[in-house]
Write a protein that binds this DNA or RNA. Structure first.
Lengths: 206, 206
DNA sequence: GTCTATATTAAGATAGAC
DNA sequence: GTCTATCTTAATATAGAC
C-alpha cells in the first residue's frame, strides 16, 4: 500500500463521495435520466469541478459500476468464507444479496440497450476485469452445483449465470414493492423462490 | 363497424405504418434513445407531418404500446381457444409467445424507471384498460393453476403475474442470443425452464 | 481544484407556405 | 396533411478567473 499525503486522501475521499452519489442516482433513475448537473448539485460542488475529477458522464457512471462490481466480489468472498456452505448455498447467498441491494435502491443497473454507457464499460479495463472475475467465480459454483445435482443439468452454465446476473435488474421487486403491502424480506423470499424453484414450485433438492 | 371513406382508410393505413415503425424502434432502443427524427425518416415523411398524426413523442409511444397490448390480448384469446388446455398450459403458452416476440425484436418494453412515458401511459385510458383486462385474464388462469396444484400456492397471484409480465423485458434472452451459438428456439426453451421449474429444476406437476 | 459564465449540440416541438 | 425552416430547451462539456 502506497503512503498517501493528506491532500491525496482528501482528494480520494471527495471522489468517493461523488461515486457514492452517482451510484445512488444511477440506481434511482438510470444512466440516461441522470444528469451531471444533478450529480454536482447533490455532491455540493460546481459542475466544472466534477469534470476535473471525471472526464465525462460515462466515466462517472463507469466508476460507480466498478465500485458496484467490487462490492459484488466482496460478497463472493463472504460466501466463500462460510465454512459449511455448498455451491448452491453460495449461489443463493449472492443472489439474495443482489435482490436485497436492488430493493434497497442501491444497485446501479446498466441500460440493457446500446447506450453510450455500454460501450464505455466494454472499453473500461477495471470494469471488464471485475466482470470476468465475477463470472469465473460464479461459473465455478454453478458447475459444482450441477455436479451435486442441486442445479438443473439441462441448463448450460451460462444460462444459469445470466439468470442470476439478471436478478440485479429484476422489475418484479419494484412491482411488488409498489403495491406497498409486503415487507422487503417477504418480497425477496418470493423472488428467491421463483428464481430457484420456479413458478411451478416443487421443493428443491438440498 | 363504421363505413370508412377511401381517404380515411389511407389515413389509418399511414398511422398503422407509423405505429409499426415506432413499435420496432421502441423494441430496439427503448423510449429514451428513440428520436422522433428517426421515426420520421424511417416512415419516410417529414417530422412535422408526424406531429399532425400524434401530438407528442409520448403519444407516439403510447399508440405502439396499445397495439402491443392488443396483440397480447389476441394471444390470450388464442390460448383460450385451445380445447384441452389447462390453466398452466395457457400460462405457459402466453409466456412462450412473450419470449418469442421479445427475441424477435418486436416487443416494445416500457422503461422501468420514472420516465415521462410511464406517466403518459398511466394517463392513457386505452392502455390502462388493456392492461387491466390482461391482468384479469392471466389472474384467473393463475388462481385456477394454483387450485390445480400446478403453480406454487406459496406465491401470491400478483407475484406470479408480475413474474410472467417481466418476461417481456428479460435480458437473459439477449445475453444468450449475443453469444451466437444457440438457436432462438433453444434459448426460449431454456428461459421457459428457468421460469416455471427454476434453476434448481425439478420437473413440474402436470 | 473551485467557481461563474458560456459554448455546443441534440432533440422535441412549431410556423407558415402550399 | 405535407413540406422546409425555425424555435426552444435541456444537457454535456469547456473557458478562464482566482
Amino acid at each position: 500500500m502506497t503512503r498517501l499525503s493528506f491532500r491525496q486522501k482528501v482528494h480520494l475521499a471527495r471522489e468517493d463521495a461523488i461515486v457514492g452519489t452517482v451510484k445512488r442516482l444511477l440506481a434511482e433513475k438510470g444512466f440516461d435520466l441522470m444528469t451531471v448537473d444533478e450529480v454536482a448539485a447533490e455532491v455540493g460542488i460546481a459542475k466544472a469541478s466534477l469534470y476535473k475529477h471525471f472526464p465525462s458522464k460515462e466515466a462517472l457512471a463507469a466508476a460507480a459500476m466498478v465500485q458496484m462490481m467490487d462490492q459484488a466480489l466482496e460478497q463472493v468472498q463472504t460466501q466463500e468464507a462460510q465454512p459449511g456452505a455448498t455451491a448452491i448455498d453460495k449461489l443463493k447467498g449472492i443472489t439474495r444479496w443482489t435482490l436485497q441491494t436492488q430493493l434497497a435502491g442501491a444497485m446501479p443497473t446498466l441500460p440493457a440497450e446500446n447506450s453510450s454507457l455500454r460501450n464505455a464499460l466494454i472499453a473500461h479495463k477495471g470494469y471488464m476485469d471485475g466482470l470476468m472475475e465475477l463470472s469465473d467465480q460464479l461459473g465455478a459454483w454453478i458447475v459444482q452445483a450441477q455436479a451435486d445435482g442441486t442445479v438443473n443439468r439441462a441448463l448450460p452454465p451460462e444460462a444459469v449465470l445470466y439468470t442470476i446476473f439478471a436478478r440485479a435488474c429484476d422489475p418484479v421487486l419494484g412491482f411488488l414493492k409498489a403495491g406497498g403491502s409486503h415487507s422487503d424480506a417477504q418480497i425477496v423470499d418470493w423472488v428467491m423462490l421463483t428464481c430457484f424453484d420456479g413458478l411451478a414450485g416443487r421443493p428443491a433438492v438440498t
